[in-house]
Design a protein around this nucleic acid. Structure first.
Ligand SMILES: [Mn+2]
Ligand SMILES: [Mn+2]
Ligand SMILES: [Zn+2]
Ligand SMILES: [Zn+2]
Lengths: 137, 137
DNA sequence: TAAAAATATTGTAATGATTACAAGTATTTA
DNA sequence: TAAATACTTGTAATCATTACAATATTTTTA
């Protein structure tokens, strides 16, 4: 597990107390949390933390390439500190978001690749997750 | 170009005046419009049409599998009457959304496919579109 | 070091897309 | 035709996100 402070510095982000806490949370919770979940979790240990700071911070992180924002859930944005390419799955029953590895990346035709400059790719699956398929007995 | 009324009937949707107009617009404008764009376009010929009806209608269309909603633009939902599988590209400069055909669909491992029930797949690309790369001289 | 400047954080208010709701209109059924 | 059902409408509520202005903190400069 990479140190949150070093991680920020390596991305050119000044590691304030709040920023380190937010990045640390994202590194330790690979659940693709939304702003409210981050806020609730950190509020206990940092009661003065403001939700606006979380919004500002995540925007900065995204601009600096330290997190990616996931729009698989149309209600609110989710955040992911793991920026290696991978696909996402959201369960329509419990709402959980899973990382999925692809056997094979999708490919575009050479013509499309020459016409369009692709800067970002997001692959979203929806369905029923293993836990909801086979509930605890 | 398929007739909007027939299209609705084939999907089990009662073809009211408003519903036909909305489906007709989607079939004739493959631009992945949002609610406001549909509203503005139809308002001229149907001044009494309500935005709520557009929301209700698109929700119904989606439930019946007559359109798919595209969440590539985090600001608002986009709608697509062409439900064959295809990927989408949004230009970060002009905002336009293009259909992209894939040479090769992404594939998941057999293990993942057995664990998860996949009901829906969305593939989103972002970058610069051909028009913005080579502007009119 | 102390003032000034720059940066970061905070709380509140504004925005804007979507949904809830209740009333009105049109269509279908009996 | 009356009653029931389905559809549409306008307004109000909700809720995530952003704008803004005031503080607080850190860094720079004299
Ligand atoms: Mn992920
Ligand atoms: Mn499309
Ligand atoms: Zn689940
Ligand atoms: Zn463009």
């Amino acid at each position: 597990m990479k140190n949150a402070q070093e991680h920020l510095i390596s991305k050119g982000i000044h590691p304030s107390h709040q920023r380190v806490a937010i990045m640390d949370y994202l590194l330790k919770h690979r659940t693709h949390p939304n702003v409210d979940e981050i806020y609730s979790a950190l509020n206990e240990s940092m009661p003065t933390l403001s939700k606006t700071t979380i919004y500002n911070t995540l925007k900065l992180f995204e601009e600096k390439g330290a997190v990616s924002s996931i729009s698989i859930d149309e209600k609110n944005a989710r955040y992911d500190a793991f920026t290696q390419p991978h696909a996402h799955f959201q369960c329509i029953q419990c709402g959980a978001i899973y990382d999925l590895d692809l056997n094979q990346e999708p490919t575009l035709s050479d013509e499309t690749k020459s016409e369009f400059t692709i800067l970002n790719t997001q692959i979203y699956y929806k369905g029923i997750c293993p836990k909801c398929k086979t509930p605890e007995k």
